[in-house]
Nucleic acid binder design. Structure first.
Lengths: 224, 224
DNA sequence: AGAGTGAAAACTGTTGACAATTTGAAAACG
DNA sequence: CGTTTTCAAATTGTCAACAGTTTTCACTCT
């Protein structure tokens, strides 16, 4: 049973993190992993039984997810896992591109030597993954790489928006594993981004980051 | 007493809009109008008495505002009206600039003839406000103009983000009335934006919109 | 007088119960 | 046989009470 497991987590983490945030993370996980498919209603009773908490925290968690774009609420009908159209997904890619561009431009002006080094090393590590054909690990590092850029750019809201849009788009995109070639192209673009940041060339960094995300959009679109 | 008023709204709108969203809008209003100053705790008991609802809807509304960036929650201490630092405000201006740039670029490619005409007329109307020295009205039209652009760009999330960032920045900015000269400069920039959209020149529209927001940031910064 | 202590007050976190609404299926009707 | 009506079950919306935490403030001890 899931209950005991969650209840345990509940007890240990109690009064540090509220049940609401715990439920929020759990629901987010369930949604992003497809456990709760698009369009599914978040049945409060059922969830409260499964997660071992009352309906209050679940409702609050749903509100949090609503603003994050992962669920949509209808009055008197509850919250549903959001259904993303392709058009909406494309829009999200564009918005993410714009924000990533800004983040990289900022980073080009702000980044310290150690930060630059960190990013260089991440790209090199991804290169190793390509030659070793470790696609899953490349995928993971790629996510970390981009989130880290948003984080290092210094803006809290920038990071929030970037990761939030990333989660949102994952509603539709079932983990696109790309094949060696595609990874190689992708990482070449990473190198351009990191290179521009290293040179302190904000305009170039911005352009490279935007183009990278736009290319990502195209790659994703091609898989449909 | 406020209670009767709110209770009335409650009864009339009941089961159409949930109490949560009503409370949300009311709280948002109170925050943006400075009725609840930055750093104030949203006392659930007090608010439930004033608004005439129980604490549940208030908690949920607070969660909505949390994701919108208007309040920040601390475990076991509740929700506080967010305190925006100048650095954060500058970041918000930049993000908004990036999104506005994207929206205008989209609009340059998508806008219909009537939409172009609508925007031209808004700018002309603002011009009239300047010569008539109706600053308040100009201020109002300016807000509508930008929100309308975001709306016409077609992306739902784009509009959401743009308006959300706008509200967030208002936490700090007490309505900057700018004087005739400043309005004139501002509206000249509007003309550039509209012109580029009219020409279908996405790159120019984007650049003009971004620059306009960056200039807005500078104007705001100068008033400190 | 000032720092520490401890209980009481105020508040948030959570719950279970009740009210209102929607949904789905059986029954009534054409 | 298909359509409408009605009613019960399921579900969301709201509330008030209880549990746990933080804050306040009077009191003690040095």
């Amino acid at each position: 049973m899931e209950i005991s497991n969650d209840t345990q987590a509940l007890v240990s983490a109690r009064r540090e993190r509220s049940l609401t945030t715990i439920v929020r993370d759990r629901l987010e996980q369930m949604i992003l992993q497809g456990e709760l498919g698009a369009g599914t209603r978040l049945n409060e009773q059922a969830l409260s039984k499964v997660l071992g908490v009352s309906r209050g925290p679940i409702r609050e968690a749903a509100r949090l997810l609503e603003r994050e774009g992962l669920v949509a609420s209808v009055a008197n009908q509850g919250a549903f896992v959001r259904q993303l159209s392709i058009e909406e997904a494309l829009e999200l890619y564009d918005l993410r591109a714009a924000i990533a561009g800004y983040a990289c431009a900022q980073l080009a002006e702000r980044a310290s030597a150690v930060e630059k080094r960190e990013m260089r090393e991440m790209v090199e590590e991804m290169d190793r993954c390509i030659t070793a054909e470790e696609e899953a690990r490349y995928f993971e590092l790629n996510l970390v790489f981009h989130d880290r850029i948003a984080e290092l750019s210094g803006g809290k809201r920038t990071l929030e928006l970037y990761t939030s849009l990333g989660k949102e788009v994952r509603l539709l995109r079932r983990r696109v594993l790309r094949g060696t070639e595609s990874m190689r192209f992708s990482n070449e673009e990473h190198k351009q981004i990191v290179g521009a940041i290293q040179d302190g060339d904000a305009a170039a960094a911005r352009k490279a980051a935007e183009q990278h995300h736009i290319n990502g959009k195209r790659r994703w679109l091609d898989t449909l």
